[in-house]
Structure formats: C-alpha cells, structure tokens
C-alpha cells in the first residue's frame, strides 16, 4: 500500500509527473466505468456538431491523472486528507499526450500546498488549480 509520505515537502519541489496517451478507446472505457455516457465524450458525430468539433475526455478522467501523481507523491496522506480545487481550461482530446505536473508552493500547518496542472503535448493548459495535503 502507498506508505505515509512526508507531506511537508520544501517549497519549489516538483512532483513526479504522470504522462498518459489519451485515446478514444480509453475515453470510452472511462465512460463505461464512470457511467457517464455524455455523447460529447463518446459520440464523434454528436461531438463534431459542438463547439469542440470532436470528442473530448471526461474532466474526471483527467483529474484521475492528477490524483495518481498526488498518490505517488504523498501516499495515504493524499487519500485521507487531500483537497483539490481545479478549473478546466481546455479539452483533452483523443490523440493528446496529457502530462500531470505539480510543484510545492508552500508548506503550512503540517501540510503542503501544490500548484497542479495538466498540459497536452503542445503545452496547452488543460486543467489548473491547487492541491493541499494535510499531515
């Protein structure tokens, strides 16, 4: 099981990134697991008529990549005392390589606050926000 890590990492420390190659098959698989069959994610014909011009990944799928990074960095402290606040800035699309990254911005009260984000292979920010892990 993920061990309890030191949650008071020094300011400026970068978390180990998580990199995922996104495909329509993965989006479809997540749709089945998550029970979210919104056609914006799974129906190319429908999605082509929207402002996105094609299917996009579920926001919660992209957040799972951030959570994986935070689990790797903080172990059970993330599972038992994590807080995440993010905004979705741009869609993640099939064919994208999504990189979840984070950096410690301050440690306070025994916990750690990180800036977190996901970018695609063009460097476009897909998700950005803040994660906090309590001791």
């Amino acid at each position: 099981m993920p061990s309890q890590r030191d949650v008071t990492l020094k300011t400026g420390v970068e978390l180990g990134p998580v990199v995922k190659a996104l495909t329509q098959a993965k989006i479809d698989r997540y749709a089945r697991a998550g029970g979210d069959g919104n056609p914006l994610h799974t129906d190319p014909e429908f999605a082509a008529q929207t402002q996105f011009g094609g299917t996009v990944a579920h926001g919660m799928l992209v957040l799972a990549y951030l959570s994986e990074m935070l689990t790797a960095a903080f172990g059970e402290a993330w599972l038992a005392g994590g807080r995440l606040k993010v905004r979705f800035r741009a869609p993640a699309r099939p064919g994208d390589t999504v990189t979840a990254a984070g950096r410690v911005v301050r440690s306070e009260g025994g916990g750690t606050v990180c800036e977190v984000e996901c970018r695609n292979q063009r460097g476009e920010v897909l998700v950005s926000g803040e994660a906090e892990v309590s001791a």
Binding site: M1, V18, L61, S67, E68
Partner: peptide
C-alpha cells in the same frame, strides 16, 4: 480505465479517491 499506476499495483484494496467521486457522480 484511468491506468492508475500509483495505487493499482499496491493491491491492498485501497481505492483511488477519484474513483469514489466518479462512482458517486454515476
């Protein structure tokens, strides 16, 4: 589905927190 390599191999029945969020939303 999410290819969670941080919690998956641990295999001691821990659940990714986003899974709880996803299942609640479902």
């Amino acid at each position: 589905a999410v290819e969670d390599a941080a919690i998956g191999p641990a295999g001691d029945a821990l659940v990714p927190p986003m899974a709880v969020a996803a299942l609640s939303v479902r």
